[in-house]
Design a protein around this nucleic acid. Structure first.
Length: 482
RNA sequence: UCCCCAGUAGCUCAGUUGGUUAGAGCGGCGGACUGUUAAUCCGUAGGUCGUAGGUUCAAGUCCUACCUGGGGAGCCA
């Protein structure tokens, strides 16, 4: 038989040329049947659906069919047919089967049954082969593509900011040190401190916690830029919303004030949601069904809105925008505050909002995404623009249900004197930041930006509950397997 | 890092006030069934009870420490 080009499952499922010979390659999900006919569910990751392979048992050697077990890789050449069964429109009547790679059923850990996400996390090298993680990988890819498309279509320039950095000025969190010094016997100065002059970069270096400061440098020349890169935090955070290595999107726009910034962030988030609904509906439907099955075990009042309905809801409604002060008033007069149900009671201006407060605002009070603005300067970073009241800064956080803070941004302080003043107040070393301060010395303009935690967005869009399940190989405290 | 919960077969779990030989479902394997949809039915193998100590005549069960996982908190994205 002449060699027939392989066609992916996603394309075969759309074909109607019945009788045509096709070749398909993939991994066996299940095989069932009797001594006359076998049915193989074949998946190649091109979509959530399997392709049904029909095998007339007497036409194939028994030894060959025995090797076709769950997880085995096979190549099938056969005839495309309209399916007699009701589960699928088309199927392949096998003419030739080649086993490309066997999977010993006694050892292969993925069984044709439901597994817990916790178990699959322990076999992250194989979990791509499940419906759930296949769907997540495809949605994640679509979102990566959509991020670039959104900004590209708006004329933004993508900037690769450094992954290794010597500046730890932002104070966004604990950093991972990068060094080539001998850890057992590092060179020391006379006072006993480690001598980083001897290190690779001639100074102490770390993995980046944010590309924002470098992003600002680019924005103050190119107008609109964005970064999309890995970010590292050595915090000992053990939650379902934190990773030690995650991907962050940080747009930075010259001539944008805080309102422009919020408009862009809201448009961006809605664009991503719409892109997922338009391009990943099969996967979202599967993820929704998975979620619904899980929700059945929960109490009625803890159940979430159906996934696709939730995405449409966010898409179709304006985010609520209010100032920190207004939020404090709402919280102060709220039932849980008056009845002392909050673990941290709200006394008044100045309190840092805890996740219980954010959740109350988003999930109970407004029941929509909320953008909070104008926080007290004490609880925000040094680079945020000081308001005229001298007490608050032009910050904005976007809060999503279940996830909490998904976006953090601000209008940046463009005034050299005020910026240096804030740095001194907060103990940021000016001399190390000379390059950053130069932007305020030479042609400084109002500018703004924000950061979006990519995995948190994927959590929201897929409806998954644990951030370790929306990145292929999660890095968390005590875990860097794979 | 703090608080709470869990760790028993490949997976998900049960295992009574400590008491003989630790159970089930799913999955695997063998068989039955001419078109199945995580097929169904019959049969069968499979265990260092997370690790290390301790209490006891006796520990899967009680105690201590540690490890791992989960939920929540803090930090944040």
């Amino acid at each position: 038989m002449e060699k027939i080009r392989r066609i992916k499952v996603v394309d075969i499922l759309r074909m109607t040329e019945y009788g045509k010979s096709v070749n398909v390659k993939g991994w066996v999900r299940t095989k069932r049947g009797n001594k006359h006919v076998n049915f193989i569910a074949l998946n190649d990751g091109s979509c959530i659906h399997n392709l049904q392979i029909v095998v007339d048992v007497p036409e194939f050697p028994e030894e060959l069919l025995k090797k076709i077990t769950t997880g085995a890789a096979i190549s099938v050449t056969g005839e495309l047919l309209e399916s007699q069964g009701s589960g699928q429109a088309v199927e392949i009547q096998a003419k030739e089967i080649e086993v490309l790679g066997v999977a010993d059923p006694e050892k292969y850990p993925l069984q044709p049954k439901r597994h817990t996400l916790e178990f699959l996390r322990e076999i992250a090298h194989l979990r791509f082969r499940t419906n759930t993680f296949g769907a997540i990988a495809r949605v994640r890819h679509a979102m990566i593509f959509a991020v670039h498309k959104f900004f590209n279509d708006k004329g933004f320039v993508n900037i690769h900011t450094p992954i290794i950095t010597a500046s730890d000025a932002e104070g966004a969190g604990e950093m991972f040190r990068v060094t080539t010094l001998d850890i057992d016997n590092p060179p020391r100065k006379e006072n006993g401190e480690i001598d980083f002059d001897e290190d690779f970069f001639g100074r102490s270096a770390n993995l980046t916690v944010s590309g924002q400061l470098e992003g600002e440098l680019a924005a103050l020349a190119l107008s609109d830029i964005y970064t999309f890169g890995p970010t590292f935090r050595a915090e000992n955070s053990n939650t379902s919303r934190h990773l030690a290595e995650f991907w962050m999107i940080e747009p930075e726009m010259a001539f944008y004030d805080l309102d422009d910034n919020m408009d862009l962030a809201e448009e961006f988030l809605k664009y991503l949601i719409k892109y997922a609904l338009d391009n990943c509906l099969d996967d979202l439907k599967f993820l929704s069904k998975r979620l619904q099955d899980e929700e059945k075990n929960k109490k009625a009042d803890e159940r979430q809105m159906e996934l696709i309905e939730k995405l449409r809801f966010v898409l179709e409604n304006d985010f609520v925008r209010l100032s920190y002060s207004e939020a404090i008033d709402i919280l102060k007069n709220s039932k849980p505050n008056k009845k002392k149900k909050f673990k941290y009671l709200i006394e008044g201006f100045g309190a840092d909002l805890q996740s219980e407060h954010e959740r109350f605002l988003v999930e109970k009070h407004f029941k929509k995404p909320v953008i909070l603005t104008d926080y007290p300067k004490e609880i925000k970073a040094f680079y945020m623009k000081l308001n005229d009241d001298g007490k608050t800064v032009r910050a904005m956080d976007i809060l999503f249900p279940q996830i909490g803070e998904i976006v953090g941004g601000s209008q940046r302080e463009e005034d050299y004197g005020k910026l240096v003043g804030r740095m001194r107040e907060m103990g940021i070393p000016e001399e190390e930041m000379w390059w950053y301060l130069d932007t305020r010395r030479f042609g400084s303009v109002p500018h703004s930006g924000f950061g979006l935690g990519f995995e948190r967005m994927i959590l929201f869009i897929t409806g998954m509950g644990n951030i370790r399940d929306v990145i292929p190989f999660p890095r968390t405290p005590k875990n860097a397997e794979f």
